[in-house]
């Protein structure tokens, strides 16, 4: 047992889908177990914090760290696991870009507290009690992790060796990493996105693409798209154009627009801004001839009114890692 390299999977601020992806290795999980000491995984194993603390630095071979950094506990675990792991992998979209938890960066901590503890329609909190990091009770002091103002990505807190993107990641990508470590295959340069391509999802999407002119935006329930044609051209906001390839274009293949879980493509700092640029380039105003500046603006606004939550749509998986990162205060 102690001869086998240690594997850990940790969830910070996330939904648990990344763990399901591990389980989705199916029978290969046995091979993982044969080759690794599956040491730490809060949703499967009962390893305690102190057990990790007790390890030598670098004692864990691989840590798959999923989830964003929402609380002081998330951050503490990130720092600890970084110290204890040889390879710390930002596993899943939340750890790489913040993803859904980071959409709360468009609001404020005070706002969250108000909504969740004071104003929610199902609340019964006459005393207006808010969670505290420290609460004195007769038995002693109770502690809760601090809730950060801003959700961060894993690489904003610690150095990350690799990224396995996806919401959730494809099990085959996990396997390829595990396999590489087992077989001692040389790993790509540090900081690489494992299983990611160097282009965008459209590269892998089989739909027919034409020069884009978008006259109206629709939500997925509003239209039945032509399954052969590019979804964006049909007015569905497909983030495939600004999302790293590697997933196999699974969503567009079943006529669901890409929501961007693989994050920005190589060399792109801000996925949402790139989407914004592209959408703003391809609006179909039916020609510009004779239009005044105001008319162009108004007609553009009319088309854009079809997008209900622009920032939430374009930054669904990448807000915490974007240029602005959060709502200005």
């Amino acid at each position: 047992m102690p001869d086998k390299p240690k594997l850990s999977v940790y969830w910070a601020s996330s939904c648990g889908g990344c763990e399901i992806a591990v389980v989705n290795l199916h029978e290969k999980i046995l091979e993982v177990d044969r080759n690794f000491d599956f040491f730490f995984c809060p949703c499967l194993l009962d390893t305690k914090y102190r057990d990790i603390e007790a390890l030598d630095d670098g004692a864990i071979a691989i840590t798959l760290f999923n989830g964003a950094i929402r609380t002081s506990e998330n951050e503490e675990m990130a720092l600890l696991l970084r110290r204890k792991s040889q390879l710390l992998i930002a596993y899943g979209s939340c750890s790489a870009g913040g993803a859904i938890p980071a959409l709360s960066n468009l609001s404020t901590r005070a706002g969250h507290m108000r909504t969740n503890y004071l104003e929610g329609p199902s609340l019964d909190n006459p005393g207006g009690i808010l969670p505290q990091t420290a609460t004195l009770v007769p038995e002693g002091e109770l502690e809760l992790p601090a809730f950060f103002e801003t959700v961060k990505t894993l690489p904003q807190v610690v150095e990350v060796d690799y990224y396995i993107p996806g919401c959730p990641p494809e099990s085959k990508q996990i396997w390829s990493v595990v396999e590489a470590v087992i077989q001692g295959t040389p790993l790509p340069p540090r900081g690489s996105v494992l299983g990611g391509g160097c282009s965008t999802v459209c590269q892998e999407c089989a739909k027919v693409k034409s020069d884009k002119k978008i006259a109206a935006f629709h939500r997925t329930y509003e239209i039945v798209p032509d399954p052969r044609q590019c979804l964006l051209e049909q007015g569905l906001i497909c983030l495939g154009i600004a999302t790293r390839d590697g997933c196999g274009a699974l969503c567009p293949a079943v006529n669901m627009p890409c929501t961007g879980c693989y994050g920005p493509p190589e060399g792109v700092a801000d996925q949402g801004a790139k989407m914004l640029a592209a959408l703003g380039s391809d609006l179909d105003l039916g020609g510009y001839k004779g239009l005044t500046e105001e008319q162009v603006a108004r007609q553009a606004d009319a088309i854009l009114a079809g997008i209900p939550d622009l920032a939430g749509t374009l930054y669904r998986y990448s807000l915490a890692g974007s240029i602005l990162r959060r709502r200005s205060q």
């Binding site: 703003g280 510009y288 239009l291 162009v296 622009l310 709502r327």
Partner: peptide, 29 residues
Amino acid sequence: AGDCHYKEGNYRAIQRHRLLLQMLEQFGI
């Protein structure tokens, strides 16, 4: 409008600016 040396670049600028304004608002800017 109509004076762009490259015909349409200013119109694209307007369109992107409209999107940007909409988004900056969500970012509290």
